[in-house]
Amino acid sequence: MATQTQAGKIPARPNDDIGREVRLRMYRTQIEIREAEQRAYDLFLQNLVKGTSHLSLGQEAVAAGFAAAMQPGDLTFCTYRGHAHTLARGASVEKVLGELMGRDNGLLRGKGGSMHLTSVEHGVMGSYAIVGAHIPIACGAAWSAQYKGRKDVTVCFFGDGTTNIGAFHEGLNLAVIWNLPVIFVCENNLYMEYTPIGEVTAVSHPAAGRAGAYGLECPIVDGQDADAVYRAAQAAIEKARAGGGPSLIECETYRYSGHSRADPAKYRPDGELDRWKQRDPIKLYRSRLLELGIGEKALDNIDREARRFVDEATEKCKAAPPPPADILLTDVYADGGSSWRN
């Protein structure tokens, strides 16, 4: 059964297991994600981002905590709600916003869009828009590392709603029987699209409640606390790297905006959003860093830099051309084209 992790409750000290450098990195990552996603939202309103988009505003600590615990070469698989994870691994804000805006400077040159952000050079092996599909794919990437004797581990993020689709269960079972170096991270934001997860799920913790069926322990982590996420991530990653097999982690978190651009999120009970905002991951983290003696000035600098960075990226994207027409037919097959006949 699920075990409640105590990781977040350990009082923080300047030179503890996390330390100043990693904490500053996690703070910066969260701020950058927040700024970039808020900008993405502003750009929708200006009709410069078309199509759909799924923001992680409020869920930044999960992305930051895991990315800080991962090493270069480790692999990330995420869902259509993947801007945060892609940025957290080091993809540039310009390329992410460029992709959202359908520009040639985008990560995928406009061929993928918001739901498919991928940056192989940063270990981001894709954002998958069919719920659950990437869970078995992440197993395959972990299998590859295991087979080749590589030390990289694979981290696969998904939502609470994803625990009700078959691929989740097939993937978990396979990971356990093959002892794969993969970490499954459920970001429980309380809703599958518009329906509260509790109304459609047999157990009260969508991931942790299922863990026992696969012989796994599943810590339930405070997903608003980057330190708690980082510690849970560290433990699971170490275990996987040492050949100890897969882990499942449930992070309790909340998205501030609707499910996607089209969703005003009217289904949420009054006060719920405000309650969660009181535990805003960035606000919490900022006060922790202040308590640890990191000066206000240093943090303000990080905030300012992130904003400037996002401003500059926005301007570059606005100036960037749309993708040229000739890439319409490229990269269907490995020969570079789309030809299916002679």
Binding site: P136, A141, S144, E170, W178
Partner: peptide
């Protein structure tokens, strides 16, 4: 057994695992 692997009755896991392996350097 490392190269020739029996799987559970999990067609999605078979296909997904093959894809994940393919995108990371194997030829499944």
């Amino acid at each position: 057994p490392l190269r020739v692997r029996d799987t559970p009755i999990s067609e999605q896991a078979i296909m997904g695992a093959a894809m994940g392996a393919a995108m990371t350097g194997l030829k499944p």
